[in-house]
Simulated assay, not measured.
Amino acid sequence: MLVLLAFIIAFHITSAALLFIATIDNAWWVGDEFFADVWRICTNNTNCTVINDSFQEYSTLQAVQATMILSTILCCIAFFIFVLQLFRLKQGERFVLTSIIQLMACLCVMIAASIYTDRQ
Rank of each mutant, 00 (worst) to 15 (best):
L2V: 13
V3C: 04
L4K: 04
L5G: 10
L5W: 00
F7Q: 02
I8V: 13
I8S: 03
I9T: 15
A10P: 01
A10K: 03
A10S: 14
F11L: 05
F11Q: 01
I13A: 15
T14K: 10
S15T: 12
S15N: 05
A16Q: 03
A17E: 01
L18D: 01
L18Y: 06
L19T: 01
L19M: 10
F20Y: 12
F20S: 09
N26M: 03
A27M: 04
A27T: 05
W29L: 12
W29T: 10
V30D: 05
V30L: 05
D32M: 06
D32E: 11
F34Q: 08
F34H: 07
F34A: 03
A36R: 06
V38D: 09
W39E: 02
W39F: 11
I41F: 14
C42A: 07
C42T: 15
T43S: 01
T43G: 02
N45I: 02
N45F: 10
N45Y: 09
T49N: 13
V50D: 06
V50M: 12
I51T: 11
I51A: 08
I51G: 07
D53P: 00
E57R: 08
E57Y: 13
E57G: 01
E57C: 02
Y58E: 13
T60H: 08
T60C: 04
T60R: 06
L61S: 03
Q62P: 00
A63M: 09
V64W: 01
Q65S: 07
Q65L: 06
Q65C: 03
T67S: 14
M68L: 15
I69G: 10
L70Y: 08
T72N: 12
C75V: 01
C76E: 04
C76V: 12
C76L: 08
C76S: 10
I77Y: 08
A78V: 07
A78K: 00
F79E: 09
F79H: 10
F79W: 07
I81A: 13
F82L: 14
L84M: 13
F87Y: 14
R88Y: 14
R88C: 05
L89A: 02
L89E: 00
L89C: 03
L89V: 04
K90W: 13
K90M: 10
Q91N: 05
G92S: 02
F95L: 04
F95S: 00
V96M: 07
V96G: 02
L97Q: 13
L97E: 13
T98I: 01
T98G: 11
T98W: 07
S99V: 13
I100E: 06
I100F: 14
I101F: 15
I101G: 04
I101E: 11
Q102S: 14
Q102R: 03
L103M: 10
L103V: 02
M104Y: 12
M104A: 15
A105W: 10
C106H: 06
L107Y: 04
L107F: 12
V109I: 15
V109Y: 12
M110I: 10
A113F: 14
I115L: 11
I115T: 06
Y116K: 04
Y116I: 07
Y116M: 10
T117D: 02
T117Y: 01
T117C: 01
T117N: 08
R119K: 12
R119I: 08
